[in-house]
Design a protein around this nucleic acid. Sequence first.
DNA 1: AATTTGACCAGTA
DNA 2: CTACTGGCCAAAT
Length: 103
Amino acid sequence: MGTKQHQAAILLVVSRIPRGQVASYGQVAELAGLPGRARLVGRILSRLPDNSNIPWQRVVNARSEISFARDSDAYRRQRQLLEQEGVFFSGARIRRQSHWQPQ
DNA sequence: AATTTGACCAGTA
DNA sequence: CTACTGGCCAAAT
């Protein structure tokens, strides 16, 4: 099993997260058939080109927060994208109703 | 080649 | 709620 296939599996899962909802890194790894490999998900997303159509902003950490520093541009960018598509926040936390629950 | 780092996480205390 | 542990592993140092 090479990284190429892992990446394809991960990006497929991310592309399926519905607009207005989020999934955690661990959840994405699990659904991609890679349990325990949340960090791999983060690493793959960090390498996406700027022009990518993958909805990377819908992946957040297990505490239901954006994983970038609150004062970073990356944080503000991700948060704006999520709020634009209807994700609800309570402070830094994303509300449960905005969490993806695939069958 | 060895060590550290990182868009992480579940379990435990 | 916070703190710490051990698990994960490719890329950067």
